[in-house]
Write a protein that binds this DNA or RNA. Structure first.
Lengths: 249, 249
DNA sequence: TCTGACAAGTTGTCAATACAACTAAACCTC
DNA sequence: GAGGTTTAGTTGTATTGACAACTTGTCAGA
């Protein structure tokens, strides 16, 4: 490790352990700590940043939980290989997963965000209420692969109406705008025949079977804040998912 | 809280924080702490069990991570509503999810575990090697809903061959037998036409579209240890999933 | 050259202590 | 009865310190 790093800011609203976690993450992302590299030991980090070892452990615990590093008793803390692939059905938003998986997708709005009164959709958490709804279609190499119909809580995120979301993740926009991240999601999967309008959008025939995923995202302090229905052309793209264990490890 | 609870065992190989986490979980599962109930405070638990508050916090952190409880600064630690439903496509095994969701499913073996040489299946991690393979069919109210073709690493889990897995989760069996839990899973989703043998098993017609999920489970120290192909009758059962955030919260 | 012992490092667990930030209930006043 | 203040509790963050369990590297002896 280089000479004494710049100190953490004890007056920051971010706790010290959090600041250190971000520092270490920066180091990993910048290539200072490539995959397989061993991080400075806990006592070393404690000395270098002038904090206690339990605080260092809390920082590395954050990275352990994110699967960025793993700790080996007696050996050290190592940077872990981050799995590739378009993790479209995991918690990260769909467009974020395209980016992460290195897939060039072009997304166009099918309908712009506007207030909709939701009726007759019992699985939609906004049933009987008003949501901001919009839809968009993603293509890979010109072929439609994903149609999304998205509903956001109009009261929670009133500014959604004015945003161009053709090229960006709604979750990322919410994180940037409201500093909230999805904490969990519920989704279910069905094979369903397409109606005529959706089949036209997706380049299929009416009645063709397609994978439909209904997803409800929960944010801290805002349960069921976003609902999305995804129509996935699994014949054109592998819709993958990585699940992480939730127990203590 | 009742009078002094029985003490934790400091000589146990399970750490104290882990023992306390299990005690609290027992209390939640037994109904002592129903949904919404407030757990004894951290100082109270520390006094009651004769341990330090950081150790209590470690115990409750385990339960926070499992989404069993949530902590509210200034208020306390509360038991969280555990979502219902058959979480079949999450990390827990399929049969475990039936049980958890209160769905009575009858499962029969279609083929018993036997050593198979895997050829011509590039997505199977045992391609070109020998795995222990078997298949089973689950019915709900007499209707087939799920066909599973499962492959386990023959070298890792040689004893699979002799086990009756018609009514029990392979993951749970592995945990019991080898003390290993799945740490993560990769899966992908496709809509595919059924061949004649599988359609017969599932009560469908050859060529009918079905949701096919290919899943690879990773255990500590045993990556890609189990591979399963699931054929899901989404017309007969809701195949749901709960995803948890991985970041620090 | 190999093996075993030892030393020095690592992470894992645990504790006491202190203060900050927050919540909820009780109490007092109008 | 309502509103504001105070009090006593809660969780969150942090520190110092200690010992256990493990790994790795070095060294000495066979």
């Amino acid at each position: 490790m280089e000479s004494s790093p710049s100190p953490l800011n004890p007056n920051s609203p971010l706790p010290l352990y959090h600041q250190l976690a971000e520092r270490l993450l920066e180091g990993i992302r910048s290539g200072d700590f490539p995959t397989g590299a061993r991080l400075p030991s806990e006592p070393q980090l404690a000395r270098a940043y002038g904090i206690g070892r339990p605080t260092v452990r809390q920082a590395t615990e954050v990275l352990v939980r994110r699967r960025v590093v793993e700790r080996k008793r007696g050996s050290g803390t190592f940077v872990v290989d981050t799995p590739d692939g378009a993790d479209l059905l995991s918690l990260a938003g769909t467009l974020a997963s395209f980016e992460k998986g290195g897939i060039e997708a072009e997304t166009e709005m099918v309908s712009a965000p506007s207030r909709l009164h939701i009726e007759g959709e019992p699985e939609n958490p906004f049933e009987g209420r008003t949501a901001v709804g919009f839809s968009r279609l993603s293509r890979v190499q010109g072929v439609p692969v994903l149609l999304e119909e998205i509903y956001a809580d109009a009261e929670r995120f009133p500014q959604v109406e004015g945003v161009d979301l053709s090229g960006r993740s709604l979750s990322q926009w919410i994180e940037q705008q409201y500093h909230m991240r999805p904490t969990s999601a519920d989704q279910n999967f069905r094979v369903t025949p397409l109606d005529s309008s959706r089949s036209a959008l997706l380049g299929l025939s009416e009645g063709d079977a397609i994978l439909m995923v209904k997803r409800t995202l929960h944010f801290e302090g805002a349960r069921s804040a976003i609902h999305a229905v995804l129509y996935c052309r699994t014949d054109q793209l592998v819709f993958s998912q990585t699940l992480q264990g939730v127990g203590d490890e």
